[in-house]
Design a binder for these strands. Sequence first.
DNA 1: TCAAGATATGAAGGATTTTCCGGCTTTTGG
DNA 2: CCAAAAGCCGGAAAATCCTTCATATCTTGA
Lengths: 210, 210
Amino acid sequence: MTETVPPALKARKRPVQRRSGVTVDAILEATLQVLLREGMKRLTTTRVAARAGVSVGTMYQYFPNKQALVYALNARYLDTLAERIEATCTVQRGVPMAQMVDALIDTYWAAKTERADVTRALYRSVTELDNDALVHAFAQRVDTATHAMLASACDLPPVDVRAINLALSSVIYGTVRNAFERGLPDAEAEALRDSLGAMCRAYLQTLASW
Amino acid sequence: MTETVPPALKARKRPVQRRSGVTVDAILEATLQVLLREGMKRLTTTRVAARAGVSVGTMYQYFPNKQALVYALNARYLDTLAERIEATCTVQRGVPMAQMVDALIDTYWAAKTERADVTRALYRSVTELDNDALVHAFAQRVDTATHAMLASACDLPPVDVRAINLALSSVIYGTVRNAFERGLPDAEAEALRDSLGAMCRAYLQTLASW
DNA sequence: TCAAGATATGAAGGATTTTCCGGCTTTTGG
DNA sequence: CCAAAAGCCGGAAAATCCTTCATATCTTGA
């Protein structure tokens, strides 16, 4: 996950003493706060520094530039998200595919919904720049986990697992994101979530019938 | 579509004389070019103005700020995209739902794929600011069209059309976007596109059986 | 305790966005 | 057709913001 960090975004120095560790955390937290309250446009270095209670100079000690802040924030977020998905994939080994899909949707949807404001803010910020690398790394990591889970299904149909995995993953992650972009009321969001599950299961059904 | 433009992004003045109309077009075209060649990060006002062959002052005559450029660009793009979808929806009235879905996926996928570089660049740029309004307006406009199409299906199942519409739309648009974010090779993209269709049709099947 | 390394500061330098207004073109109305 | 009004353009200057750097303060370890 951390291997392919674009050089322009790599952390300048790693915090060594305790206080600097606190500082870095404060800066990241401040970045999120400002992002939520003011939006990307008003996310200025001085604002973040002020909210974190440090000087700009201190910020640049650990982050080479403004984008690195957002990058680090997303990295942290995606890391914990990947962990949760991996956990689900581990738990669901060997069960029927339909159940796997339900569990996956549950996990992903829940993770995104818990703090919808954060989800929304980060969804936007990711596209900013070279966060491509980040997103790709995340996708690959998660795909590996889901692939392993699917391959272990007790009712695995005689079809290429890679293809199934790609289809399910793309549809699920894509739909969830789209659901967030429309600001659906809870009721409709629920309904959509169920439809998504139904769709995936119906799809698996067609594969099984072969 | 143009009703809910955020005040911070509204065009300063509408071009009245012919030459200013040309100027505005040149500026938008230049914006796209710079976006494609240099990326969002290097999209500076002077660069755009230079490429458009006008001065910065002229630009600000029509666009209140830099983001307004990107906003207008997306507005233009989404407008033609919506037109294409609406056209498809009109043509497909009264046919079976499965065919509608196929046609919809075809249209959307084709529109996005024709100029993948533009699609990618704009997908990123949208998040920049209050383009929320833009995306919402687009979604609503397109939803209206697809809803009308679906409601006219000759094999309409006895289920709430609104729900079906939301489900299909979210899944299709979301999946297509996700497909673009992963930079899939053509073969896999094709496969995914087919899976998406299969999934939608399988879903409709389950509704029909009631 | 004291030096060496680590961390923090904020004014200054550089780059970019945005404003402002004088001068030039086109349109309008008599 | 002509002059006044409206519309349009250019580019320097002001306002913001990002980033650097020299200097000051704190921590660690011997």
